[in-house]
């Protein structure tokens, strides 16, 4: 009964906009994995430098390449969120 009342009072456009906002929030969650991964990589690198200080230069160079590559997945999730929020492709297809 309650759900029927709610469903009849919400327009299609409002529903799609709301779901787009939920999808945008979920897409941004991809940043969590990137953050944890980069933090772990940096922690392991710090431990490696602690064990072998003379390898600091090599560790840093490899880590920079890894960080730059890993960051992109967070950006992609972020781009999806911005597309859902600002360009609204789902609303325009109604």
């Amino acid at each position: 009964m309650f759900l029927e009342t709610v469903a009849s009072s919400i327009s299609n456009e409002a529903f799609v906009l709301g779901m787009s906002a939920v999808g945008a929030g979920l897409a941004v969650c991809s940043g969590i994995g990137t953050g944890i991964g980069q933090g772990n990589a940096a922690g392991q690198a710090a431990a490696a430098v602690g064990r072998q200080p003379e390898a600091k230069g090599d560790v840093m160079q490899m880590m920079i390449l890894g960080q730059a590559i890993a960051e992109t997945s967070a950006i992609y999730g972020f781009v999806v969120a911005i597309i859902l929020l600002f360009i609204n492709p789902l609303v325009s297809s109604l």
Binding site: G39, A42, G43, K56
Partner: peptide
Amino acid sequence: NALDQQEKGVKKTMQ
């Protein structure tokens, strides 16, 4: 900066 710190502090700095 991260490589100059202790392992525990590094995770927070990088995040």
